[in-house]
Nucleic acid binder design. Structure first.
Length: 424
RNA sequence: GGAGAGAUGGCCGAGUCGGCUGAAGGCGCUCGCCUGCUAAGCGAGUAAGCGGCUAAUACCUGCUUCGAGGGUUCGAAUCCCUCUCUCUCCGCCA
């Protein structure tokens, strides 16, 4: 959520920033309502002020044995007036909040302006895509041939966009989860959390999924609860409505959760394989930091995510997303894209964002910069560290052998009972 | 699912028959004194949100907030209703 006072103070600047994200027209309604709000507020506060002093006066007079009937009647009528104005105020404030909750974050100045992903900027590459002496198979063929993916039975259980992992496939998935958590907790200083996989609508609003993207998520029937679309939601909301001391920051959190996504708008994309699923596993990284540190922290967080790809020996590149491709809550985002031989291109496997105070304002996560100092919103960051299902796909494709087997990277072997390859 | 208890400031915790309680007391924190250093001790200060006034996130000032929402009243942390959550006991259960 943007700061209403900043919008009021500098509407043209905010409009220009929003225009970079192809958003226009939303501020005029806000400004009108905001003025309306302050007008009503001024009037109702004046009435309340009078009521307060009059009520005290009544109390004083009654103590002296008097019965100020006229004054009491006057205040009673004023109470009706106040009630009407309070109701009006409430309506206006609800409209204002609705507008603010639907406005995305402002892009950082370093973010390239563009319509869509075509304007993303490649920052760096790591590793060299392997040259194949034969036509590399896509991961879904490899997985089915090795009998570690079962799409048909998954469809029988749950429909399209689900996968059943079997034997070494299930083990690989589990190995990666443990490997990622170990690296991030032991090497990068994150605290491991195992959160609930269902969260309240309040949490979803706190991180920005609600109210705008309700159709992307799975809601629990009959409850104001949702299956988590990413661990970012429970991790960031851990400190919702809290006041932190400066000494507590930065907070680094990591968690494994399954992620559930309805992905309403993406029908027809990546229909084969495990790339786009209604349920997938992910290890997430979240940071709560002081504002002045958030950009260096974004670089570090991105490096932390990159590290696991390096350890796995998977070639990737880092993309700086343009204004047209960024998520709702982000001010700046780096995507990590892993090399996928069968696609002959890089595919997103991680997304690392600095949300600045956008989520903190929604979730009311504040901290005291120094003793006695005024409270400020913390900055929140999040990044995949990294998506597990897509890692399995990348490993299968990049480490496939001509005989159909797949080599297991050295670092994962301890997590797989010493297994060095998946064979039929 | 059944029965009971509770929800107050950064934390703990008082609030009597509704008014002078934004809220005693304590802890923590800040500043000052004291002090070889530390601890202890002494004194003062210390909620947030939204408005007005401002260059100001500095003063000053108004309103709101004692789990949430509604009601009674001239006036509610205090009375009434609804809801949410927490705790204890019972039942069920991995």
């Amino acid at each position: 959520m943007l700061d209403a006072r900043q919008i009021r103070a500098n509407p043209d600047h905010i409009k220009a920033q929003l225009a970079k994200r192809n958003i226009s027209g939303v501020l005029d309604g806000f400004l009108l309502l905001d003025e309306n709000r302050r007008d009503i507020l001024g009037r109702v506060e004046e009435l309340k002020s009078f009521r307060n002093s009059a009520s005290q006066e009544v109390g004083r007079m009654k103590k002296e044995g008097q019965e100020p009937i006229e004054l009491m009647e006057k205040v009673r009528q004023m109470g009706q007036e106040i009630k009407v104005l309070d109701e009006q105020l409430k309506q206006v404030e609800m409209q204002i909040e609705k507008i603010l909750l639907n406005i995305p974050n402002l892009p950082h100045e370093s973010v390239p302006v563009g319509e869509d992903e075509a304007s993303n900027v490649e920052i760096r590459r790591w590793g060299n895509p392997r040259q194949f002496a034969y036509e590399p198979l896509p991961h879904w063929d490899l997985g089915v041939n090795l009998d570690i993916f079962d799409f048909e039975r998954a469809a029988k259980l749950s429909g399209a966009r689900f996968t059943v992992y079997k034997s070494a496939g299930a083990l690989l998935e589990r190995a990666l989860i443990n490997f990622y958590l170990d690296i991030h907790t032991r090497e990068h200083g994150y605290r491991e959390i195992l959160p609930p996989f269902m969260v309240s609508a309040d949490c979803m609003q706190g991180t920005g999924q609600l109210p705008k993207f309700a159709e992307d998520m799975f809601k629990i029937d009959g409850l104001e609860m949702y299956l988590v679309p990413t661990a970012e939601v429970p991790l960031t909301n851990l400190y919702r409505e809290e006041i932190l001391e400066a000494g507590q920051l930065p907070i680094y959190l990591t968690a494994y959760t399954p992620c559930f996504r309805a992905e309403a708008g993406s029908h027809g994309r990546d229909t084969r394989g495990v790339i786009r699923q209604h349920q997938f596993n992910k290890v997430e990284l979240v940071k709560l930091v002081e504002p002045q540190n958030s950009y260096p922290e974004l670089e570090k967080l991105t490096n932390d995510a990159e590290k696991v790809l390096q350890l796995l020996g998977l070639p990737y590149r880092v993309m700086l997303l343009s204004t047209g491709d960024m998520g709702f809550s982000a001010a700046k985002t780096y995507d990590l894209e892993v090399w996928m031989p069968s696609y002959n291109q890089y595919k997103e496997i991680s997304s690392c964002s600095n949300c600045e105070d956008f989520q903190a304002r929604r979730a009311n996560i504040r901290y005291r910069p120094a003793p006695k100092a005024k409270l400020q919103f913390a900055h929140t960051l999040n990044g995949s560290g990294v998506a597990v299902g897509r890692t399995v796909a990348a490993l299968l494709e990049n480490y496939q052998q001509e005989d159909g087997s797949v080599i297991i990277p050295e670092v994962l072997r301890p997590y797989m009972g010493g297994m060095d390859a998946i064979k039929r």
